[in-house]
Design a protein around this nucleic acid. Structure first.
Length: 490
RNA sequence: GCCCCCAUCGUCUAGAGGACCAGGACGCGGCCCUUUCAAGGCCAAAACUGGGGUUCGAAUCCCCAUGGGGGCACCA
């Protein structure tokens, strides 16, 4: 079995989902997963796009059996390297009177569309060149006019396409177009290239986005014209905007009502601090369901269970809050050492100099407190500031306390901590609880003041564990700095 | 405008005629735990778009309406 996703351009998350479903289907059935680059639009060609695609898929753990960088016996897998093949088969269709050369200029076509719109007619090519006489054709040729090759769609009857998710879909042929197969620059359109390639690459199944449904009957007729068997096909539902309407597109990148940026491109998910496992799990939960009331499952489990029967044909919007939750689940389950490695560049990018050893120790503290990697600096920056500055004095003073009381409490705490036999969280806690009682303070008051004094943050991981990671010397140094700030202000 | 697809809690979904006064998850609200924030535990609110059929029986099948989505390029 062979499968062909056809990504092109930068990796859109919808494209990722299509690739993922194809890959899962192939892996489940033990078939081959083929990556083919459909770069037949020279205007939109981006030099680094192929690399972005392969790197993106690799990052997610989606591997391919045939395609760029890995080869395969039906290559090349980049369409711009297969131009001769498309031209050859386009000519074959013309020779067999199944397609024709069209000499209409873009200007005429634009004018035609304009006129149709003005008259509220259905837009579409009027098949002007389909019925050219040999003389007219010869005349145009003599003029050296550029031409395209258009498919001769049957003008009456119906065409039925069998969709694996939706069953038979029937179209009236008279409202289908004579689509362009070969452009005037000699490049094929998607319609020609995908049919030719799927045939010669022996593709058995296609899963593509729903927006292809309207051209499916033309593809069906193209296969018939060539006399080739059409692969089984399933059209995947589109992904809609999280809050707004319409399908998710690059243009939907903006802000949700929560004021958050909506990630659309794969690298935006990476930058937002989502990990591959979470993205994969998330994507499989949109449009497909595991069953058994389970939301969290491994890729291996998904492969084992993946089937078209559980694909929901309805479009769905992007439940980003669920991705946040899922990402948090994966972060919490992750080996803390791996988390530390993932977090290192995040802290560095935020401008901190990271001591990996300390980060390893801090990772378990950060773990249950972040949903995305990018949230880590807000919670754990205090571990890595090289010039610690105490917070504004008002933040050092907990509720129902005044500066003098806080000053005294910090000084006492400092002495207690300095005299401890060891600096473990448990030892600290026992001693400081006793101190709080002695001073007539609640645990919240004393610990709150110490938290502010040592982290300069309003919220942080638990105080004692944090100080333990920080180390006694650094903790005492910070408390002293805060005492100094308090004394100066007072 | 025309064609096509789709339709269960706010959202993602389970449900393939009786097991459904509709199950799970996220989010939201409440409670517990608690040194802040999380995490965790418990509880709650929350849906079959409407109308016709078919059937002894419909969330499940059919039709219509409505709503949403997609398409109508020398882009994929």
């Amino acid at each position: 079995m062979r499968f062909a996703p056809s990504p092109t351009g930068p990796m859109h998350i919808g494209g990722v989902r299509t690739a993922l479903f194809n890959w899962l289907f192939a892996r489940h059935h033990g078939g081959a997963f083929i990556l083919r680059i459909e770069d037949t639009d020279q205007k939109r060609y981006a030099a680094d796009a192929i690399h972005l695609i392969t790197e993106g898929l690799r990052w997610l753990g989606i591997d391919w059996d045939e395609g760029p960088e890995v080869g395969g016996e039906y290559g090349p897998y980049i369409q711009s390297e297969r131009i001769d093949l498309y031209q050859q088969w386009a000519d074959w269709l013309v020779e067999h009177d199944l397609a024709y050369r069209c000499y209409c200029t873009p200007e005429r076509l634009a004018a035609l569309r304009e006129e149709q719109r003005a008259r509220k007619q259905d837009p579409g090519y009027d098949r002007h060149c389909r019925t050219l006489t040999p003389e007219q054709r010869a005349e145009y040729e003599a003029e050296g006019r550029e031409h395209v090759i258009r498919f001769k769609m049957p003008v009456d009857g119906t065409t039925t396409v069998h969709d694996l998710l939706r069953g038979d879909i029937t179209f009236d042929n008279h409202q289908l177009q004579d689509l362009v197969l070969l452009k005037s620059d000699g490049f094929p359109t998607y319609h020609l290239a995908n049919v030719v390639d799927d045939h010669f690459m022996q593709i058995s199944h296609i899963m593509r986005a729903e927006e292809w449904i309207p051209s499916a009957p033309v593809h069906r007729n193209l296969y018939d014209a060539f006399g080739w068997e059409m692969p089984q096909i399933a059209h995947l539902p589109v992904i809609l905007n999280p809050s707004g309407r319409g399908k998710l597109s690059k243009r939907s990148a903006g802000f949700t009502e929560g004021g958050r940026k909506v990630p659309v491109l794969l690298y935006e998910f990476q930058e937002a601090g989502y990990v591959p496992e979470a993205i994969i799990n998330f994507l499989t939960n949109v449009g497909w369901s595991f069953g058994d009331d389970r939301e969290v499952f491994t890729v291996a489990e998904t492969i084992e269970r993946f089937d078209l029967g559980r694909v929901n044909p309805a479009g769905s919007s992007f439940p980003l809050e669920k991705l946040d939750w899922l990402n948090g689940v994966y972060l919490r389950e992750m080996d803390p050492n791996r988390l530390a490695v993932l977090l290192k560049p995040v802290f560095e990018q935020a401008g901190y100099e990271v001591n990996l050893e300390m980060l390893r120790q801090a990772a378990p503290l950060l773990q249950p407190r972040i949903k995305t990697l990018s949230e880590a600096p807000a919670m754990g920056a205090f571990f890595f500031v090289d010039e610690f500055a105490p917070p504004p004095v008002e933040e050092l003073i907990p509720k129902k306390m005044d500066a003098a009381a806080v000053l005294q409490a910090l000084e006492r705490a400092r002495d207690v901590l300095a005299g401890l036999p060891d600096f473990t969280a448990a030892t600290q806690e026992a001693a400081l609880r006793a101190l709080a009682e002695e001073l007539g303070l609640s645990a919240g008051q004393l610990f709150g003041a110490l938290r502010a004094a040592t982290t300069a943050q309003r919220v942080s991981p638990p105080l004692f564990e944090s100080m333990e990671v920080l180390g006694r010397a650094e903790s005492l140094r910070r408390i002293d700095l805060s005492i100094g700030a308090l004394a100066t202000a007072g």
